[in-house]
Nucleic acid binder design. Structure first.
Lengths: 318, 318
DNA sequence: CTGAAAGCGCTTACAG
DNA sequence: CTGAAAGCGCTTACAG
């Protein structure tokens, strides 16, 4: 208790403070704090007493600086508004927790500039690893960081111009499942609703074309390049959607007509709208866990060539 | 290029390495890196050349250790599966970015033990501030950290047993809006679906009781303590739900009957189920921004007594 | 304009 | 069993 009104907070006690209060050397405090052997019970008690009295808590940042690692991973998403990204993060966090890592995170809003600034800021803090949902464009700014030892795994989309691990859903397989399902129901005019460009939509579109051909149906590129406005009046009896957002947009766009909808990725309440929406489902949490485990293995020294892991999908027909 | 196959990554160059390559003192490198004045153009050029050659990137963690701050905030949520928490995080991140902070984050799954471990781990890393969605129970473990200078703001729920800032939606007002709306539509048997206990449900329930009385309707505690199972067969013509999750549960529970539903917090697609679901809406992103701004102000030295900020709600009738 | 020394709060390597 | 010194990679305070 000080006699004066304390306006600013008291400085944190350090090991040095603990040492002088306990009347021992710094190193002895370090031994006690780290549970290293070779300290008399009496000495230990005195040190613990001083720690208690002073309210000492070791500064992990300082410890980690000396140690050379940070026990920190960085996660970079498009946006937290997308539940898919939040779910990936959830899976990653569970792995990080198991292995004693803390997580930095940030979102890019799909802006490559923001991605680069965020990644490099995290690397400057010397994160041990990085998990990135890549924005479009080159990621070669990361090459020197990866060479310097930052383990890097890309999720949901593969990186461009950099060799690194990637974990994503089986999009090709998902497109095939969706189209085969709709074709089996007798649909012949099947559209695809997604972004004009970008990895996910390109891959899904290619899968659609493949599956349409396999089903003996014509491939109409116009129908495979729908947007919400065009969908509203498009000559389709069924539509496959690239993600939750597009699935919701489709539900609104065809609310007044009977168009079958299949979404890539499950959507809450999709089973309760009418007609109910089927989905090609996969587990984004598993993507996060898989990416985390891969990263941990890399940090443990796994030098195998970059891997690409595809998480399985399954059809939920409604 | 080394002659040997490089299996482990080369160590990162330090300012010391840059200094010796440029033939200057460490301090001169520091001056150049920090853009401090008083360095000859020629010297600057030599230093920049060495930086370039070596691929030097300053270690921020080391800089921050010396500086005494970390330019880092910590965010602790229940779960990323809850879009409300993800949205709060989104708002917080925008403020953090504006002010040059990086964010640690983690989730508790509503486990007080996990919250404490996470908070203290972040404090041990010496975060400048903490934004917490508090789990139930006491938060007095944080008192010493707050006294040590960790700015702390609670969001979505107020803390227990610790004086600190809090930012949350106007729950009382939301309950009144919901009940008044339903009463005006002629509903007389109105239930509440939420957790048996916990801040949100308690507050909403109290608001319901108040509003029911104000509307001249009887207050039936059984109807204010519904769960999904009881709701399915409860004698209600309308139900008010504590959050997205309970709103979705209600939609399923009364799918076969005509029961009016009002949710606290908007739910995607709620307008497209039938009958459409009305909501008391508020902006969780704004909660995150507000909490972030409050924290930044505290870090700037604002010593005013702890504040409690309630974010406005509005009814979206459907 | 430039630099040698001390220090941020710890750990590592070594000595007694 | 205990400790004095050096060092992690930077910045601060001071001297020339």
């Amino acid at each position: 208790m000080s006699n004066q009104m304390q306006v600013v907070s008291a400085p944190r006690p350090t090991m040095k403070d603990v040492a002088s209060r306990a009347g021992v050397a710094l190193k002895t405090v370090s031994r006690v704090v780290n549970g290293e052997p070779g300290v008399t019970p009496e000495t230990t008690k005195r040190v613990l007493g001083a720690i208690e009295d002073l309210g000492f808590r070791r500064n992990e940042s300082a410890r980690l600086l000396r140690t050379g690692r940070t026990a920190t991973l960085g996660f970079i998403a498009d946006t937290w508004a997308d539940p898919e990204h939040a779910a990936v993060y959830q899976g990653l966090e569970s792995i990080a927790r198991e292995h004693g890592y803390l997580l930095y995170s940030g979102s890019t809003d799909s802006d490559p500039g923001r991605e680069e600034r965020l990644s490099l800021a995290m690397c400057a803090r010397r994160v041990d690893g990085l998990i990135i949902v890549p924005t479009p464009g080159s990621h070669d700014y990361l090459v020197s960081e990866i060479e310097a030892g930052v383990a890097t795994v890309f999720v949901l989309r593969p990186p461009e111009l950099v060799r690194a691990d990637a974990v994503l859903p089986d999009e090709r397989g998902g497109a095939r499942l969706a189209i085969a399902h709709l074709a089996a129901l007798g649909h012949r005019e099947i559209g695809f609703l997604g972004e004009p460009d970008g990895h996910r939509s390109r891959t899904l579109r290619a899968g659609c074309a493949e599956a349409l051909t396999a089903a003996g149906l014509p491939v109409d590129q116009a129908l495979l390049h729908l947007d919400a406005a065009r969908l509203a009046s498009a000559e389709v009896s069924a539509v496959f959607c690239a993600d939750q957002e597009h699935t919701r947009a489709a539900i609104r766009a065809v609310a007044s007509r009977r168009v079958a909808i299949v979404g890539f990725g499950d959507v809450p309440l999709a089973d309760l709208v009418s007609p109910p929406v089927s989905v090609v489902s996969y587990d984004p949490v598993l993507i996060g866990r898989t990416a985390g485990e891969l990263l941990i293995r890399r940090l443990a020294g796994d030098q195998a060539p970059p891997r690409r892991v595809e998480v399985p999908v399954r059809l939920i027909a409604r």
